[in-house]
């Protein structure tokens, strides 16, 4: 029953830039890899380690956090905090023995529909290449 591996990717998108960018990708009929499931949050700063770590431990093959470009945050500074928290998390996930690029932070603006598609497709390709998150089958998580 060797089925082609299709990853499960969780994408946290900020409402103002990245979600709008994703919408633009849709309304421009850009093809985007379906393995990413979008979860809308108001600001990338809402996404903290609790959300990302639990996604990973519960078997997400990849987690994408996308927010406004630095300086563009609808709430002025949220994405800077998001970035710091993310930098910390990158360190932490290392000890889970996961490839550090299973989690990704990207800046996607509302006009960057194409970029959204590129980032998601590339990320999905990367994750597919990496194969399933070993934790998906880890009974301890």
């Amino acid at each position: 029953m060797e089925k082609k591996f299709k990853p499960n990717i969780v994408g946290f998108l900020c409402n103002w830039c990245s979600y709008a960018g994703a919408d633009l990708a849709g309304s421009s009929k850009t093809q985007v890899d379906p393995s990413l499931s979008v979860i809308r949050v108001m600001c990338s700063s809402r996404v903290n380690s609790n959300l990302i770590l639990s996604s990973l431990l519960w078997g997400a093959d990849g987690v994408l956090v996308a927010g406004c470009h630095p300086g563009d945050c609808h709430y002025e500074q949220g994405n800077y905090y998001a970035r710091r928290r993310f930098a910390l998390l990158k360190k932490i996930t290392k000890i889970l023995n996961l490839e550090p690029d299973r989690i990704q932070l990207s800046w996607i603006s509302a006009s960057e529909g194409k970029r959204y598609a590129e980032i998601v497709n590339q990320f999905a390709r990367d994750i597919t290449k990496k194969g399933p998150n070993p934790l998906t089958r880890n009974s301890q998580t």
Binding site: M42, S45, R46, N50, H74, Y75, Y81, R85
Partner: peptide
């Protein structure tokens, strides 16, 4: 304004962002 940055920063989950 409801951005949720505080929620992201609170270690004990004492803050709730309504609707998120």
């Amino acid at each position: 304004r409801g951005c949720g940055n505080c929620v992201g920063s609170c270690p004990s989950g004492a803050i709730r962002s309504k609707h998120f």
